[in-house]
């Protein structure tokens, strides 16, 4: 088992701008790391550097303590799952899974036995003789997983492995991947642009933007104490409300800060409450399951508020929006970094 250290990694493709601008991470052996960020922020590039498929311009990559900047991908003992699976179209499922073993010199009977064992864990045993072209999207995804698992690598890299699946399958595979991580005990680095995948899978999340690592911490910390306004806005099922502190009734005499308020920490009242509240008008509401998502208009701006369904029977003209001020996160209005605030 091996940890991975990234030290001030910089990368630009020939003739292009810098894609990674000094990324450092210390990943412990056995951790499930999710790299998340908007598309184009350099997630895949970072993963490919770790895999050895690209070379970095500056910085050190260490795996298990060994510097691997100049080690070829096939010598890094890393398994990778590609976004489009990259299954070998001319090989059947058994051969696809066993190919890595064959290249490492394992005898035919042995590697086929191993492939079949892996296929069984992934419920692929009925498709061993099929070519990838005759499999569904979910089955192909499993073959890609099986190919990575067969070799017992200590590190798995996954680049948006579920993004081509429909929603139900994606959620199901999510828990399977989590379970797999528990069984294998391997280090997993998982790239996604989907914040809910990040929150549900990761031991630690790395949030990236424009080639910078903004925050690298546990899902709980990232959710509750985001490093800056971007992280606060990017993670979470619903968009956070960002408002200047001077416009809000919950604090007095403060200025120069932006407050991040999550919709679930806000409450809706049909009559003016005793505590401070913002008068608002419901523009429309969305059903999100157990809750309603209320889009409100107020003098301070647009507000998103979640409310239990039964509480709001029909849309009301005027409401008062209260807030649990202890949940607030504050950002410097200029730099947009989070600041501690009493």
């Amino acid at each position: 088992m091996s940890g991975i250290q990234l030290q001030d990694i910089r990368k630009s493709y020939t003739g292009g701008p810098q894609v990674l601008r000094g990324v450092s991470m210390d990943i412990r052996a056995g951790e499930f790391i999710v790299i998340v960020g908007p598309s184009g922020c350099g997630k895949s590039t970072l993963l490919r550097l770790i895999a050895g498929l690209e070379k970095c311009n500056e910085g050190d990559i260490r795996i298990g303590g060994r510097r691997v900047n100049d080690v070829a991908p096939q010598d890094r003992d890393i398994a990778m799952i590609f976004q489009n699976y990259a299954l070998y179209p001319h090989m059947n499922v058994r051969e696809n899974i066993a190919f890595g073993l064959e290249l490492r010199g394992m005898a035919k009977a042995e590697r086929h036995a191993r492939a079949e064992e892996v296929a069984r864990t992934l419920k692929l045993d009925a498709f061993l003789d099929r070519k990838p072209g005759a499999l569904s999207g979910g089955q192909r995804q499993r073959v890609a997983m099986g190919r990575a698992m067969a070799r017992n690598s200590s590190i798995f890299l996954m680049d948006e492995p579920l993004s081509n699946l429909d929603n139900a399958l994606r959620v199901a595979m999510r828990s399977e991947i989590k379970e797999l991580h528990r069984q294998l005990g391997a280090t997993i680095i998982y790239v996604t642009h989907d914040q809910s995948e990040a929150l549900s899978l990761a031991d630690r999340i790395a949030v990236m933007k424009d080639g910078n690592l903004l925050q690298f911490d546990t899902p709980g910390t990232i959710y509750d104490r985001p490093a800056n306004r971007f992280v606060a806005g990017f993670l979470g099922m619903h968009p956070t409300n960002f408002l200047p502190i001077e416009t809000l009734p919950f604090w007095q005499g403060k200025a120069g800060l932006t407050v991040g308020m999550r919709p679930e920490h806000m409450t809706v009242h049909t009559a003016a409450p005793e505590a401070p509240a913002i008068p608002a008008r419901i523009v429309f509401s969305e059903m999100t399951g157990a809750n309603l998502m209320l889009h409100c208009e107020s003098d301070v701006g647009r507000l998103l508020v979640t409310a239990p369904r039964q509480e709001m029977v029909g849309a009301q003209e005027t409401v008062w929006i209260g807030y649990d001020a202890s949940q607030a996160v504050f950002f410097d209005a200029g730099s947009e970094n989070r600041v501690e605030h009493g």
Binding site: A51, L53, P73, Q74, F82, A86, Y88, H90, L103, R104
Partner: peptide, 24 residues
């Protein structure tokens, strides 16, 4: 990506050519 998958699987460039590219 097929080449890259094969490199990750442990192939050398000639192996990639012979086992992946040529059959396809």
């Amino acid at each position: 990506a097929l080449d890259e998958a094969a490199y990750m699987d442990g192939a050398t460039p000639l192996k990639v050519l012979w086992r992946v590219i040529v059959p396809i």
